[in-house]
């Protein structure tokens, strides 16, 4: 049996989990402020075992600034690459992703509408923005795909990318319009158009985790269906996949993941494009391996991108969206070139 066909063995999972945790620790230990490794480990160790921690700057920075941020970054990475991998399978298109399809812009628009019109959910900070971001991510996805199917039933790369670009421009023009009319709240709104996880706290990480557990379960339990859809929608129907239901399930889960990431960190482009693609080159297209491997890959990639943003120009920060877009657009061109050449 070829090793690429089966789900990973537990040893492979353990290895991926360990390296992700190692990177997580590295990202907590390194930062704009130098804290001795021993201090960092003491703080983490004592917290894990519930021992008292000496109060002070190190404790604040590690437990209240770095750890929640690194956790949020990792969870965003997992969510974005999982949704990217699922959409690329569903649409049989290696360039599909929240940012290329315009779903992220749709989610930003939703969040901005919530802020501009003061929609809130009592008790949950930014709950209104989060709910609206998810809703708008889903609506945008449905709109984009309906339109794409009408234009070109085979959902060719060019069609999807073109519609994604147009939809992004459309969403941004609406956003500009709202900014024009909302005067005072302009600044608060501008945030949703740039990606930043700098101020992430434990509530953000918790919101990401809950969404990830729910939507991740939906997507991971559909890996066989995603394999079938990635091979062909008609073929999937013929072998007994309930295509409509699976599509709806994947679309809802993907847009919820994108929505929550946008509401926590703004638009962080291209993660969902780059990671599943690189992972596919390593472990093959079978979603039983691809999905889990992409999740770990996404966490590691985004944590390292964030670390670079924090450390390179210290004390200044490079926004994480800038770093991912730089890497992402290069990979995008590479994939686009190769898929076009293959035709």
């Amino acid at each position: 049996m070829d090793r690429r066909k089966r789900p990973f063995r537990w040893t492979a999972y353990a290895l991926m989990l360990l390296s992700t945790i190692a990177i997580l620790l590295l990202c907590v230990c390194m930062g704009s402020v130098n804290i001795p490794l021993a201090d960092t480990l003491t703080v983490i160790w004592n917290t894990l075992w519930g021992r008292p921690i000496p109060q002070g700057m190190s404790r604040s920075i590690i437990l209240l600034v770095r750890l929640p941020r690194v956790l949020s970054v990792a969870l965003c990475g997992v969510s974005l690459s999982l949704s990217g991998a699922a959409m690329q399978g569903l649409l049989r298109n290696p360039l599909a992703d929240g940012s290329t399809l315009g779903v992220s812009s749709g989610a930003s628009l939703g969040a901005i509408l919530a802020i501009a019109f003061g929609l809130t959910i009592p008790g949950v900070s930014y709950g209104g923005a989060m709910a609206m971001a998810m809703l708008f991510a889903f609506l945008s996805l449905v709109f984009i795909l309906t339109f794409a199917y009408r234009l070109d039933h085979s959902l060719a790369t060019n069609t999807i990318i073109l519609i994604g670009v147009i939809f992004t421009m459309f969403a941004h023009s609406i956003i500009s319009l709202i900014i024009t009319f909302s005067g005072d709240k302009v600044k608060s709104i501008m945030f949703w158009t740039m990606g930043s996880l700098a101020g992430s706290n434990y509530q953000n990480a918790l919101a990401l985790l809950i969404t990830l557990v729910l939507c991740g379960a939906l997507i991971l339990s559909s890996s066989r269906e995603l394999n079938a859809l990635a091979i062909g929608e008609d073929n999937a129907r013929y072998i007994g996949v309930d295509v409509k239901r699976v599509k709806l399930r994947i679309l809802i889960a993907s847009s919820a993941l994108i929505g929550v990431c946008v509401s926590v960190g703004g638009t962080i482009g291209f993660v969902g494009l780059v990671i599943p693609h690189m992972t596919r080159m390593l472990v093959g297209p079978n979603h039983r391996r691809l999905l889990t491997a992409s999740m770990f890959g996404g966490a590691v990639f985004l944590m390292l991108a964030d670390l670079a943003g924090r450390v390179l120009l210290s004390p200044l920060e490079i926004p994480i969206g800038v770093i991912t877009s730089l890497i992402g657009s290069a990979v995008f061109v590479y994939i686009f070139y190769h898929t076009r050449k293959a035709r």
């Binding site: 066909k5 290696p94 394999n227 079938a228 990635a230 072998i239 007994g240 596919r280 297209p285 079978n286």
Partner: peptide
């Protein structure tokens, strides 16, 4: 079972992976 005669596979699935999917409904 339906056998379509138009196929365009975009990803590098192996032959066995595609054939195994035939068992989907039996799981």
């Amino acid at each position: 079972a339906f056998l379509s005669q138009r196929h365009q596979v975009n990803y590098a699935f192996t032959v066995e992976e595609v054939v195994t999917l035939g068992r989907f409904a039996h799981r």
